[in-house]
């Protein structure tokens, strides 16, 4: 599903974010990406949804070589990838329903389908009673769930989550991870960048360790260790 071949990324200011990365992630896998701050986790994710281009090397996502992808095709690549950020990035002046439906509205989804899919995803994430609330009226965990709902509402093949439990207490973190595991069980390839040792150790999934832009470890059923 995601292949990286000898990928290097150097930012214009000279910072070398990724160094000779070779990663292969199969369809339907659940992968933790761990490492200290500044290790290159976020850059690696941004390459996948083509927010950045590699300086050298190749990134192939669902059979598409992202650096050869025509600019007009990029939005269609992104429709097959859901992204969840630590800082939520929700629209505070819109309701939960509108925040989730936003992802469908801006991709020209038919009206009836927007209603159906938004309602069912909101219900799946247990927010059915808060559809008309705005993000300002929600707790951190609820906001993160709205964010996840928005990321999965158009049934993406890949879900990227950057520190999804970064702002949450331990109970809420477990709850969010359970939801992510459920989404993965339905066939979505999942990549989770995290600092949360407990969760990584508990879930026993593939763990890729990243330090200074290099892959230092890559173990199936791994633990938080880089």
């Amino acid at each position: 599903m995601i292949q990286m071949y000898n990928v290097n990324k150097v930012y214009p200011n000279g910072v070398k974010a990724l160094n000779a990365i070779d990663i292969h992630i199969a369809r339907g896998e659940f992968v933790f990406l761990v490492g200290p701050s500044g290790a290159g986790k976020t850059t690696l994710m941004r390459l996948i949804f083509r927010d950045e281009l590699p300086s050298t090397g190749h990134v192939i996502v669902d059979g598409r070589n992202i650096e050869r992808l025509n600019a007009s095709k990029v939005p269609y690549l992104r429709r097959s990838i859901g992204v969840v950020f630590q800082d939520f990035r929700l629209l505070d002046n819109r309701t939960v329903f509108d925040n989730v439906a936003f992802a469908l509205r801006v991709t020209n989804t038919p009206y009836d389908e927007i209603q159906d899919r938004t309602n069912s995803v909101i219900d799946l994430l247990g927010l059915g009673h808060k559809k008309q609330f705005t993000p300002l009226q929600l707790s951190g965990g609820e906001k993160q769930r709205v964010c996840i709902a928005r990321a999965i509402v158009n049934n993406p093949a890949i879900l990227l989550t950057d520190e999804p439990t970064g702002n949450l207490d331990p109970d809420m973190s477990v709850e969010i991870m359970d939801i992510l595991a459920e989404i993965n069980k339905r066939g979505t390839t999942l990549l989770v960048a995290t600092h949360n040792t407990q969760i990584v150790n508990k879930m026993q999934r593939r763990v890729i360790g990243l330090v200074d832009g290099r892959v230092t470890s890559d173990k199936a059923k791994g633990v938080y260790n880089y």
Binding site: A71, S72, R78, F102, V106, T107
Partner: peptide, 17 residues
């Protein structure tokens, strides 16, 4: 800018934005 960044993220085309 937040709306625009989300639009880009979820795959809205440039002309839609």
């Amino acid at each position: 800018r937040t709306e625009i960044s989300i639009m880009k993220l979820v795959g809205a085309t440039n002309w839609f934005i």
